[in-house]
Design a protein around this nucleic acid. Structure first.
Lengths: 355, 355
DNA sequence: AGTGCTGCTGCAACCGGTTTCGGACCGACA
DNA sequence: TGTCGGTCCGAAACCGGTTGCAGCAGCACT
């Protein structure tokens, strides 16, 4: 009963009408007399008919699906990202295909394969080469998520550089720290690359010697532990560590505590993201808050608008504001207010204190 | 060039053959003379033709996709799960739709909607009611992932009860602990429910009074911090805390350290999963290792076998073995060997030491 | 020359919907 | 009574593939 095996022709026969009328009734389009409509609806209800998705999709020449491409997922950032994206898509009855290219050699082939099954593709920044993005962009709507695409490809991202610079200035100026190290791989993702740029920029602005090379590790907690091991074994220990994200910062925190270092007294640590744990560890993590869910939701919205033809496909890059969150791990007392800082564009709320 | 707009009829015209022949060549089916094949292939290559997915799917009466349904994702567990599932699916050129029912009221509708767009559905245990699963099972292949389904619905899960009981016995017997608390919500997921059962079972086996009610929190790190707050505020403090998974254990570890408690001297903490961080924190976490990726991959394989009709759809439940991993957080010295324990089925490797 | 077999190919039906087009019917009006 | 405008509905084309079946050519064999 109602096992979806029914076809529109079947229903048409049962209701004594033509398939065209069944289609009209089930879609609410065209003119159908009240009496006929009722008869068709009864047949539909009674047999639990639902139009077959493939038939509809083929006729409409749309898949009713979008794709989400990322290298591999890890940590709360990706969880938020996927959920934000998915919950936006589901409101438009659009399904979400996922593809983790995760170190697979033939990822380009897989992406192209996927491109033929969806109406649009959201690609995480840094996952595909600009050439591949260009090629894809020629065949379907593409939006880059968290990163910049080649010209003509729209992107949605967060403000990274200014906020990381503000965070770094806070350490350099308000806490008078000098030896700072950066943990994260700038060539691994556009986000990290921009944060690294902001880190360097702050040094430059203040006329300080440029920092040494970053500790190039991944973005997960264990990577932070590993980075801490590396850093604390060095002859010149840093006074502060600016991490590419909260996860690595939490890892560094663990690594520091493994080494018996006190934070922030012996070592200052900062993150980026403002994940839930950032506020819960001791000391609470000074970080930059980014609206991850919102980022993903905006991307999904933009993608579906572009796919529907409602928005121009020309590179309309959207930049979401971020916000410096000062807590204890930078050395601030619970309620200290550091100098002014600037962050993202629109209503840059500026500084925010917590704890 | 090669923008996918070409149809088979177009190619047929260009190669001077019929669509049937184009189809045969592009699929390598049927008999085609070498000369004709070459001519068609040239036209295909030259114009970058690829068969339209919807047309193929409609004719084949299969979507070439499977769905993955879960409540909402969080932490390394879900990351692994999705990646394991996806990487298995991609090898069969099957795409993966995801659906997070995440507290949405009309999730049943959404699942049914998705059911019409895929060839099979993997549902995380505890996400849907048995009635819904039954109903779905009537319309397409279903496999329950990490949990049991209603009779007739195959499932893939890990061994939870015995290994948690072994872990608990280790604490009760080898470390002579008495007041243990459990952190996790047994009604939240089948996994937690089974682990809670194993926790109680160990007490029963040893003739000890049954433990008090669990601290019902979620499975993420912040939940562990919250649980620690609750527990350490109580008049009767536990000597040990058995957590439903590593994430909450890490959270409890943070909470304990926030309260100035030493682990394992003042408080013993254990987890479940053996996430990468478990080995990296101090003290390293005693836990149970479960093969998450493998779990997901097996589920994907089983689902696709069932969807292809290669396996019977009758509830063939697969249980993957787990393995107790004893580290420092239970009070063991680096190399201590506790009493024997049993874990999963096949080659229950039993106990494993680390650090 | 007739028969049978094999290899290759095209016609047309089919998968399950949507949509255009035009015909049938009805009431209003001249 | 003839014409017109409007509503309702069905036949058929279409979306883009796959496939059963029949036909045809070429060849061997009788």
């Amino acid at each position: 009963m109602g096992n979806g095996r029914l076809t529109a022709r079947e229903i048409a026969r049962l209701a004594g009408v033509s398939v065209a009328t069944v289609s009209r009734v089930s879609n609410g389009t065209g003119q159908v007399s009240e009496e006929t409509r009722r008869r068709v609806l009864r047949a539909i209800e009674e047999h639990g008919y639902r139009p077959h998705h493939l038939g509809q999709a083929l006729a409409a020449r749309r898949h009713g699906a979008v794709g989400l491409v990322f290298p591999g997922l890890s940590g709360p950032y990706f969880s938020e990202l996927i959920q934000g994206f998915e919950s936006e898509a589901v409101t438009s009855r659009t399904s979400v295909h996922i593809l983790c290219t995760h170190l697979r050699a033939d990822s380009d082939t897989e992406v192209i394969e996927m491109a033929h099954r969806v109406d649009g593709l959201a690609v995480l920044g840094g996952t595909l080469s600009d050439e591949t993005l260009q090629e894809l962009s020629g065949m379907l709507p593409i939006v880059v998520l968290a990163g910049g695409g080649p010209p003509g490809v729209p992107a949605v991202r967060v403000e990274n550089t200014d906020s990381t610079a503000a965070l770094t200035r806070h350490l350099l100026t308000d806490h008078a720290l000098r030896r700072l190290d950066f943990v994260g791989n700038p060539s691994g993702s556009p986000d990290v690359s921009e944060r690294w740029a902001g880190f360097r920029e702050a040094h430059r602005q203040l006329g300080l010697p440029l920092p040494r090379a970053p500790i190039r590790v991944g973005l997960q907690q264990p990577d932070g532990v590993f980075a801490a091991e590396q850093l604390l074994r060095r002859s010149i220990r840093p006074q502060g560590i600016v991490c590419a994200n909260d996860e690595t910062a939490l890892g560094v925190l663990v690594g520091a505590s493994n080494h018996g270092l006190r934070v922030p007294e012996d070592l200052v640590i900062t993150g980026f993201d403002d994940t839930p744990m950032a506020a819960l560890v001791t000391p609470a993590l000074t970080t930059v808050r980014q609206p991850v869910r919102e980022l993903a939701a905006q991307t999904a919205r933009l993608l579906m608008r572009v796919a529907a033809g409602d928005a121009d496909r020309n590179g309309s890059t959207l930049v979401l504001p971020t916000e410096l969150v000062v807590r204890r791990s930078c050395g601030c007392a619970a309620t200290t207010t550091p100098g002014s800082t600037t962050t993202g564009r629109p209503s840059a709320a500026g500084l925010r204190h917590s704890r």
